[in-house]
């Protein structure tokens, strides 16, 4: 890890432990009735783990992130960071929203450093930290470009660089590759794993893409349609470091079909383990 430590400097940090206990969220609607979005969600991400949350649209995945990031409060239940209930969570986790969230009036480098800037890091110092990483993220020539000049994949990389540079112990990635074509997507997934390996922070990823969840995660939480609950938890026991070639393996296919079944709400993962899997949680 020494070279990585050198490269990322302060951006590198030990991962945090995130835990959601019986998380519930209700919104009151215009007609006065209550809409239950999350109905008892338990989720744990151990330090340095890569956890994926998968589920149909509207199941409350993004609400989980909004609560974790501190944008919203839970109606009930607890959010624990490193084992401590943390009611003020803004600024604790690095959040990457579904759309890249690049500010159109900032050049790529200034978008990348905005988290540091808000944290009070002097501009020159923030840039110094960002410049070598721009290279690593394939954006070296685009440091001075405006966001509209970037392709979709480059925008996502810039947004991810911004997330990494914040140097937080946990990263929340909300469908980071949702809008990309298949080829770009595969490359970026591979690349995300490499960067995560170097950074060492805890990652929670939201996705609706089954192979993506299997390829990236140590553990996948499958959510039910609204009101959101955890329908299944699947440990992905594939060796690391992983490359895209692993998608051809029979175990990969087994995990995929298992997740698909859980998404359709058919399978109780405890009763019906798929071939080649191990270590489910109830």
């Amino acid at each position: 890890m020494a070279p990585a430590r050198e490269r990322y400097g302060d951006a590198m940090s030990a991962g945090a432990r995130l835990e959601l206990r019986d998380l519930r969220k209700r919104f009151s609607q215009a007609d006065g009735s209550a809409l239950t979005v999350l109905d008892g969600v338990d989720l744990t991400a151990e330090p340095g783990e890569f956890v994926a949350v998968i589920g149909p649209s509207g199941c409350g995945k993004s609400t989980i992130f909004h609560i974790l990031a501190g944008l919203e409060d839970a109606s009930d239940g607890a959010v624990l960071i490193d084992g401590v209930q943390t009611p003020k969570r803004l600024g604790v986790c690095a959040f990457m929203p579904q759309r890249d969230g690049l500010l159109p009036w900032r050049r790529v480098i200034d978008n990348a450093t905005i988290g540091l800037e808000l944290a009070g890091v002097p501009r020159a110092q923030a840039r110094e930290r960002a410049l070598p990483l721009l290279e690593r993220f394939g954006l070296g020539e685009f440091a001075r470009a405006w966001p509209w000049q970037l392709s979709g994949g480059m925008r996502q990389r810039a947004a991810f660089l911004r997330t990494v540079l914040m140097g937080k112990p946990a990263m929340l990635l909300d469908e980071p590759f949702g809008a990309l074509d298949g080829i770009t997507r595969g490359d970026l997934q591979q690349w995300l794993l490499d960067v995560w390996d170097e950074v060492g922070s805890t990652v929670v990823l939201i996705t609706h893409d089954v192979p993506e969840a299997v390829f990236l995660a140590d553990r996948v939480y499958v959510m039910s349609p609204r009101p959101g609950r955890i329908a299944a938890v699947v440990e992905i026991d594939l060796p690391r470091p992983r490359t895209l070639a692993i998608e051809e393996s029979p175990q990969f296919a087994a995990y995929e079909s298992r997740l698909r079944a859980a998404l359709r709400g058919r399978t109780d993962p405890v009763d019906e383990p798929a071939a080649g899997t191990a270590g489910e949680r109830p």
Partner: peptide
């Protein structure tokens, strides 16, 4: 709204939100 939320998750103050977004 997304940009505003993003900066809030970075711990931005109201003044920072006003000036930067």
């Amino acid at each position: 709204v997304d940009a505003t939320n993003l900066l809030r998750t970075m711990g931005a103050s109201r003044l920072q939100l006003l000036l930067r977004v």
